[in-house]
Structure formats: structure tokens, C-alpha cells
Nucleic acid binder design. Structure first.
Lengths: 174, 174
DNA sequence: ATCTTTTACTTCATCAGTGAAATATGAAGT
DNA sequence: ACTTCATATTTCACTGATGAAGTAAAAGAT
């Protein structure tokens, strides 16, 4: 894995050169966009690497975590799609895989029988409890040298960015 | 597309509930991690949507931009792999596709005949110049309400995070 | 000079995710 | 009752990315 440092340096140089030709280019904003994508990509790679020993991918992990975090340990495919930003097709596949491993159950909903209720099993809870703690040191390391205010700032800016993205999507109803 | 706002609220609630059970959970850091992944995922979706009309995906776009930004408009697959954080296999496929569209050329390197030199064509440059400007308003909108100091802060924090991730990868020579 | 190792890229098989269309079922509105 | 809408699953075709093995050339070792 190539160090991000180098990758980021190349990006900086590239943007500098391009903005000499294309003067209208919003260099600072473009840099921020690329930084976001580069850094988070590495974060995701890192996470997937940690999940691999447990034979879970990112989507499956998110699904498990979401279920685990719910008071009653259950949800529906539709809700999971929204949360995990997955298509319904993929959600079905994920649920199939997790059911097969005995980590969740699928059952018809009593009130609205169109719905399917997905519930985390005891084995699922055990898996989450087993795999989560080893993740903590890595997360700590990522933000180890972030002061309290650094953390607050980053959270604030990311939430602000999220709000702007929501605005953008609204005006681009694709 | 579900609004990020809602997705983020669910995440906040989830982390709050989990950290009541798992007290060791570094809640602030976990929140920052998830925020990064959620927000950048949406950014990437948005970008891919803008690229689609030009029949480019993210990797291909990165490749084109990297070539375009180089003084001589050329590079090698290996270098591109590093920059775009792609496997060599994927790079081959990308190059195939771009060559087929006449956006780049592939040629054997004279000095080292293992190497392949990839070069952007005039058509490739035209495409970049055509597709880039329409992207600017969106990037501007994303960071529109970011003050100068907001932008500086975000860039600084992301670069710091990148450095920490590099540290992490070093100590995990997978 | 030959043998081995390393580097650079490609090929092939496969997996993960997406989008669209078809199906089944049930709820809600008139 | 009848239409319309909502929820979820299945199938199929497709895109994008990856891992393992293969090829070819350069670099290094003996």
C-alpha cells in the first residue's frame, strides 16, 4: 500500500498545475474534495482488512452494527437499505448471507405482512462483541493526536459538509 | 437517495446506545470515522453521477486527471496504480477502456521494455477540458458556507488524519 | 555467462454491487 | 370490490474490482 502522503503530494502538485491552465478551477475546494475521498478510501480499506478475518464485508458489518445498536435488535430490509445506503437487491443478498451464518433471522411481520423483520441472533451479538474491541485501538490511533477541539471541529465541518451535500442532492433529483 | 442528515442521526443514536453497553468504545472517534465514511461515500456517488454522461467512472476519471496534470501528459501503469490506489489488474482494464476510446495511448518504453508508457491524447485533453468546468459549481456548493478558516482547518485535519493512517499501515504490513 | 530474483504488466476466473424488470403479497383509498 | 401503492424477493445482465497465476524483461548473484 502506497503511503497517502505521497499520493496527496501528487494531488497537490497536479491541482497546482491544472489550475495554472484552468484558472476558474476552485483549487481549495477541489483539494478538500480529493482529500476527503483519498483519506476515507484508505479508512475503508483499513476497516475491510480488519473485518476480513470475521468473513464480513463493510455492508454486512454495517448491517450487523445497525441491528446490534437497535433497542430490540431488529429492523426491516427497507430501513437497512436507507441506513447502509444499499440497493434492495444487495440488501437481500446480504441478509441471505447473514441468515446462512446464523447471525440474523428473517421473519414475516405480524402487523404488516408485506414487511420482513430482520433480527440479530445471540450468535450475532456475540460476534459483534468479539470483533468490536480489537477495532478500538486502530480508531484511537487514527485520532490519537487530535485535541478535543480538533475533534469537535472535524465533526462540525463534516456535519456541515453533509448538510451541503443534502442540499445538492435535493436540487439534483436524479 | 436518503438524506445524509437522517442517516447521520441514526448513526449518532446507534453509537450512543452501543456505548452504554460497551463502555470502552471510543465514541467520539468512532463517530468521526463513520462521518468520514458516510460523507465521502455520498461525495463519491455524486461525482460518479456527474461522470456518467461522459461514460467515465471514478477510476478512469482519476487516471485522466492525473495524466492531464502531468507536464508531459504521460505516466506508467505502475505510477497510476499508486496514485489511484488501484490494483495493477484494474489499471490494465482501465487503460484498455481508455485506449479503446482514443483518450490515451499505450506504448512500450524504450529504456525499460517491461514498462508501458501511457499518454493522454488530444481527444483526452479535450474531454477533460469539457467535463471539468461543469463540476466546479457543485464543488463550490459543497464548501460554499465554509469560511477561509473552516477550509484551512478541514484541510489540516484531513492531512493529519492521513498521516496517522500512514503510521497505522506501516505497523500493519499486510 | 548463466542462474535467480525482482519488477512490470497481463490474463483469467471470480466476487461484490447495481439496475431493471417480473413476481408476490398486503395495505390503503375510493 | 377495485384500483393503486408499498414492501420485499428473485432473476438477469452488467459493471467494477480483486487475487492468483502467467509472461516478459531487467537487475543482481555466483
Amino acid at each position: 500500500m502506497a503511503p497517502l502522503k505521497q499520493c496527496i503530494r501528487m494531488m497537490d502538485e497536479g491541482i497546482a498545475r491544472v489550475s495554472q491552465v484552468l484558472v476558474q478551477l476552485p483549487a481549495a475546494e477541489a483539494t478538500l474534495s480529493r482529500l476527503m475521498l483519498i483519506v476515507s478510501r484508505r479508512m475503508e480499506e483499513d476497516l475491510e482488512l480488519q473485518l476480513k478475518p470475521h468473513r464480513l464485508n463493510h455492508s454486512e458489518f454495517l448491517t450487523m452494527m445497525f441491528l446490534y445498536s437497535r433497542p430490540d435488535g431488529s429492523s426491516t430490509p427497507g430501513e437497512l437499505c436507507e441506513f447502509a445506503a444499499q440497493g434492495a437487491t444487495n440488501m437481500t443478498r446480504i441478509a441471505n448471507a447473514l441468515v446462512k451464518r446464523g447471525l440474523i433471522t428473517r421473519a414475516a411481520c405480524r402487523e404488516d405482512r408485506r414487511r420482513v423483520v430482520i433480527r440479530i441472533t445471540a450468535a450475532g451479538r456475540r460476534l459483534v462483541l468479539k470483533m468490536l474491541p480489537p477495532l478500538f485501538p486502530r480508531v484511537d490511533a487514527m485520532f490519537g493526536d487530535f485535541s478535543e477541539t480538533d475533534q469537535r471541529h472535524l465533526a462540525r465541518l463534516l456535519r456541515k459538509l453533509a448538510a451541503n451535500l443534502d442540499q445538492l442532492s435535493e436540487h439534483t433529483p436524479s
